[in-house]
Design a protein around this nucleic acid. Sequence first.
RNA 1: CGGGCAGUAGCGCAGCCUGGUAGCGCACCAGUCUGGGGGACUGGGGGUCGUGGGUUCGAAUCCCGCCUGCCCGACCA
Length: 438
Amino acid sequence: MRLTKAFQPTLKEVPAEAQIASHRLMLRAGLVRQTSSGIYAWLPAGLRVLRNIEQIVREEQDAIGAQEVLMPTLQSAELWRRSGRYDAYGPEMLRIQDRHGRDLLYGPTNEEMITDIFGSSVKSYKELPKALYHIQWKFRDEVRPRFGVMRGREFLMKDAYSFDASYEGAVASYRRMMLSYLRIFQRLGVRAVPMVADTGPIGGDLSHEFLVLAPTGESGVFFDAALEEQDWLSRPVDCDDAESLATFFSTVTDHYAATDEKHDEAEWAKVPDERKREGRGIEVGHIFYFGTKYTASMGIEVSGPDGAPFHPHMGSYGVGVSRLVGAIIEASHDDAGIIWPASVAPYRAAILNLRQGDEACDAICDRIYGTDPENMLYDDRSERAGVKFNDADLMGHPWQIIVGPRGAKEGKVELKQRATGERFELSVEDALAKIGAA
RNA sequence: CGGGCAGUAGCGCAGCCUGGUAGCGCACCAGUCUGGGGGACUGGGGGUCGUGGGUUCGAAUCCCGCCUGCCCGACCA
C-alpha cells in the first residue's frame, strides 16, 4: 500500500481520553477510533492486525479438528429463557426489541445457540465428538469500559464449543483445546501462560485462563519459568490419542502457575527460586469444561450405544481477538511506538523514501515495493525524513527499508529492524532476502 | 453502582473566577527556502463554545436540568 493512497491517520498528540500505552498507541497509529464508550471502529491498519490474529486462530483451531461456523450477533430471548439465563444474566446483557415487540439480545456468548443448533441436528453418539467455533462480535454492557479495546463493551471473540459422549471424551477435547491455545499465542508472538481458574459449581480442575505477560496487566501472576520456555509448535502431540494428550497436559499442569486470586504460598515455595517468575498478566483466553449444564437445561439428548438417550458433555473455549490487539501492544512497545510481532503486523515492512522525487530513490523504492505491494507500506509522501522515521516507529512495522539519496547512488538501502534497532546497509536484493520477501 | 473530573477548530489546550465582537500551539491549504529523526518564513481556511432552559441591554463566562466522555473503587472475557 502506498501511504499517499492509504487511509492511515497518525496523531502526533495523544487524545485526552487514552490513559494506557496500548490505547494511546492504537489511537496515535491510526488503528482504531472510538465511537462510543467501549465501542471502536477499526481503521485499515487495525483491521489488518485483527484479521491476522483471526487467521492464526483459525488455522490452529482447524488443526485440532474444530470446524468454523458463524452465528448471528442477535439472538432470541426465547433461547435464553430455555437455559434459564435470560433472567440470570443481569444488566450486562444488552436487550432489545424488534418492531413486533419480540425480545432480542445482542449475544454476550453463544452456549445456548450452539447447543440448540447442535441438538437439533445430532442424534447419535456416533457423531461425537464435535467441536465448533466462530469468530464473532459480542456485546457485554460493562459498567465501566476502559483501557481501549482491552475492556470494551463490543469485542471480537473466538468462541468454541465441544460436544462429547463422556467425561473422558470431554477431557480429551479440553486438552486438545489447550494445546491449540498454546500454539495460537506462541504464533502471535506473545507469552501466554495457562493458569488454573475457578470452575464455579462444576468443580474439578478443568478451567484455565491464559494470561499475556505485560506490566500493565490487571492480575498478578506467579508461575514456573518452565511454562514460558516450552516450544509448543514443535512438540509432537497426537490429538486423536488420549495418552499423547495426557502426556502433553501434564507438562502444563505439573508446573505451578496462578493468578494472585488463586495464589498458594505453600505450593509456590516448592518452586526452585531460579525458576520463579512473578509479574502481571492480561487475560486473553479462557477454557473450561462444564459437563451437561446446557444440554441438560435445554433438553438436548443423543442416543448412546445401548439406545438410551444421554446429555452430551460440553466445554467452551474463548479467545479475546480484539483484546489481543491491545494486549500484544502492552507486551510489545517502547517510547517511540508499537513493536509488532511479525505474525500480526499490519505490514511486514515500511519503505521510507527519504527524498521523494529523486530519480534514484524513487526507482529503488518502486522496485522494492513492486516485489510485494500487498504487504509493504510505501511511505511515498513528500514529508521530511524525520516525519517518516517517527511514523514508521509509531506504527511498528517489523522492518523499515530506508532509501536515501546517499545510498541510492550506489544501489544500497538501509534496513532497520524495529524490535532491536539494528541497522544494516545492504543491496536491494540482500535487504529483500533478509526480510524474507520474494 | 459509589466517589471525582471534563466537554471551546481535526488533536492538545487557554479564555470562565471579575459577563461586553472567540484565542494559542500542532495539524490543514497556497507559496518560497529546506531535505537522514516531527524544519523555517510569508499568506490563508476552519468554531451551533455538548445540549435545553433561565438571569441580563448583552452569556463560552452566572444559575438549573439533561446528554456525552474520562479517572479511582466495586465488578468483569
